[in-house]
């Protein structure tokens, strides 16, 4: 039973294909999410299980087993390849913080992680961490598919037919009542990973907007800037105007040479003397 494939099943029912596709106009594809287009997360299976960071004794909420489980899930969601993955950024610590901050998340994680082990024992007779990588990925794929289908908006007739097929599938071979846990952890991992500077070099991102901004916004991007480290901070010139000086409305240049926090007085937000109502409240 565990080898029954949801897509194959729906195909055999002969109704899945109707929801497939998108609009094709001279080379432009508007993708609409549908069951047939759920991409395969791992076209090739990586060798060996991902290394996970040792338990952080200072963890705020997760216990040792939960910590290892979250780290493993994170490493499957954002794996290491020629570029660092979730575990290189130790984003399990970030998730630990997210969870500690929210009562609602504490419940979802406690129940969700327990449920991961239960479903794994049901399907394979072992805890999730004891599965091999292929089984882990296979199980997560099935959970992801089920959650995605269940959360799709139902608006028209064809969607209702599809939803019915999903319900039949869930009844026959489903993974039981899930708490949408995979969606929650998937989102948290992506938020933590792509907020971490380690990921910015992978995709070529300069970093947050302030305080430096992007004064080269009108030029084509230069690949040199993002293959290296995040923008270098020089302590000689103003970070914002790069010491070139920006003329104000009276045609004066700003003061050169006096830098506070690497920015000149005219440029840097915290130090520029523009008016504030009632000053800063602390």
């Amino acid at each position: 039973m565990k080898n029954v494939n949801r897509r194959e099943f729906i195909k055999k029912l002969g109704i899945g294909a109707v929801a497939t596709g998108g609009l094709l106009t001279s080379g432009t594809i508007i993708a609409s999410p549908s069951r047939m287009e759920l991409p395969d997360p791992y076209p090739e299976l990586p060798d060996g299980k991902p290394a996970i960071p040792p338990y952080n004794e200072q963890a705020l909420f997760l216990n040792e087993h939960q910590y290892a489980l979250v780290a493993t899930l994170a490493a499957i969601i954002v794996p290491e390849d020629e570029h660092p993955g979730a575990n290189e950024a130790v984003i399990v610590d970030d998730i630990d913080r997210f969870v500690a901050d929210s009562k609602e998340k504490q419940e979802i994680y406690t129940e969700g992680l327990k449920w991961m082990d239960e479903i794994s024992r049901e399907e394979y007779g072992k805890d999730f961490l004891a599965l091999d990588l292929k089984e882990q990925i296979g199980l997560l794929s099935r959970i992801d598919e089920a959650e995605t289908m269940r959360n799709r908006p139902v608006t028209g007739f064809m969607e209702r037919v599809d939803r019915k097929a999903d319900e039949i599938w869930d009844d026959l071979f489903g993974i039981g009542e899930s708490s949408n846990f995979f969606r929650v952890i998937h989102k948290d991992v992506l938020v933590a990973y792509f907020s971490h500077p380690i990921s910015w070099n992978v995709i070529g991102y300069y970093g947050p907007p302030q305080p430096v901004g992007y004064l080269d916004f009108s030029e084509p991007p230069s690949p040199k800037k993002y293959t290296g480290a995040i923008r270098k901070v020089s302590n000689k010139t103003c970070l914002i105007c790069h010491g070139e000086g920006t003329k104000n409305d009276r045609g004066e240049l700003h003061e050169k040479g006096k830098l506070i926090d690497n920015t000149c007085k005219t440029c840097h937000p915290p130090h520029s003397p523009w008016p504030r109502i009632g000053g800063f409240s602390k």
Binding site: Y42, E44, I76, V78, L190, F194, Y205
Partner: peptide, 20 residues
């Protein structure tokens, strides 16, 4: 990056390829 990553429910090797 977070906005783009969350735009589709990708994960695994597929996610990294797509983001790159």
């Amino acid at each position: 990056p977070v906005q783009l990553a969350l735009h589709k429910s990708n994960w695994g090797a597929q996610l990294k390829d797509r983001m790159r």
